[in-house]
Amino acid sequence: MKLKFDGFIIALLSMILLAYLFPQLATYEDGKIFNILSSVGVALVFFFYGLKLSFSEIKHGMRNWKLHLSVQLFTFLLFPALVLAFKPLVQTETQKQFWLSFYFLAALPSTVTSSVVMVSIAKGNVPAAIFNASISGLIGVAVTPLLMHFFLEVGEVNVFGELYLGLLLEVILPVIAGLFLQRYWGKWAHRYSKALTTFDKGVVLLIVYGSFAESFVNDIFHTIGTTYLVSLFVGVIALFFIVYFVIKLIVRYVLHFNREDRISALFCGSKKSLTHGSVFSKFLFANNPKLGLFILPLMIYHAFQIFVITIIAQRLGKQIDK
């Protein structure tokens, strides 16, 4: 079985190394220049996202409401509920930080590109995957901050003020602008879809670099040990498989979906978006020196979900071919 080499994972690791060696690139002029660059980059990412949204595909996809409702409930209800179950076990400040980083991962929307690609490889319901992955990102703009608000110590940041103002300026308005200009530039966006995806990844790398640079400058990683990092890896892997198999049981034995819909529900419902996570972390953990620690589980989950789902998707696709 051949697996495609994902250079983006290596690029993410390279950004962490770069942040460790040269953190001053992000802190130059008190970080003002870097913040402007990342803000402009985020706005462009979601502007292009709006250009690529297809009203016809969304309208067509709404017919399978049972599948779509299930995927969104898996994403924004099942995931957080599983992590919330461990909240009573949190005692120390370190444990709280550890738990909150997982809860942030659980509250995020599903990813778009990899979900659609994997569903296509597995011969699943591709239109449903496109619809759910796209809608999930829009829902996440409102739902993710609300889910986080119950457990987040925001300090001087007003969650319903500064946070939503930032999301409005850098996420919502660019998406709306993209939707309005789709009739003019929509074909251009689809023609250069791969280039725009590369740009999206570049912005994510920029945010990841800035997050870890700030953490390295504040010497945060010296406060945690090997046990903490090992627990992160074990926790992320356990969370993925628990969610995956719970969804698998529900769609097969409770909802009785057909094969194509089961694949779409499994792949879209068990994935989390690194793009949205890196963007939301800018606002949710504003001025928090531990930002790198809060997005670390998300980065691990991103790499692991791509690796495992690729194997599963190829196996399912070959079953249909045979």
Rank of each mutant, 00 (worst) to 15 (best):
Gly7Gln: 08
Phe8Trp: 07
Leu13Pro: 12
Ala19Pro: 08
Ala19Ser: 14
Tyr28Leu: 10
Asn35Thr: 13
Ile36Phe: 12
Ser38Phe: 04
Val45Ala: 03
Val45Asp: 04
Val45Thr: 12
Ile58Leu: 15
Lys66Tyr: 01
Leu84Asn: 08
Lys87Gln: 14
Thr94Ala: 11
Phe104Gly: 01
Leu108Gly: 05
Ser114Thr: 14
Ser114Glu: 04
Ser114Ile: 14
Ser115Asn: 13
Ser115Asp: 11
Val116Ile: 15
Lys123Ser: 13
Ile130Ser: 00
Ile130His: 01
Ile135Ser: 04
Ser136Phe: 05
Gly137Arg: 03
Gly140Ser: 03
Leu147Tyr: 05
Glu153Cys: 00
Val154Glu: 08
Glu156Phe: 04
Asn158Tyr: 02
Gly161Gln: 10
Glu162Met: 09
Leu163Glu: 09
Leu165Glu: 13
Leu169Ile: 15
Pro174Ser: 04
Tyr184Ala: 02
Tyr192Asp: 09
Lys194Gln: 12
Ala195Lys: 09
Ala195Gly: 11
Leu196Asn: 06
Leu196Met: 14
Phe212Leu: 06
Phe212Arg: 04
Phe212Asn: 05
Phe216Trp: 00
Phe216Cys: 09
Phe216Leu: 04
Val217Cys: 09
Ile224Asp: 01
Thr226Trp: 07
Thr226Asn: 08
Tyr228Asn: 10
Tyr228Arg: 05
Leu239Asp: 02
Leu239Lys: 03
Tyr244Gly: 02
Ile250Lys: 06
Arg252Val: 00
His256Trp: 05
Phe257Gly: 02
Phe257Tyr: 11
Asn258Pro: 08
Arg259Cys: 04
Thr275Phe: 02
His276Gln: 14
Phe280Ile: 12
Lys282Ser: 13
His302Cys: 11
Ala303Met: 06
Phe304Tyr: 12
Ile309Glu: 09
Ile309Ser: 10
Thr310Glu: 06
Ala313Val: 05
Ala313Leu: 04
Leu316Asn: 02
Gly317Val: 02
Gln319Gly: 00
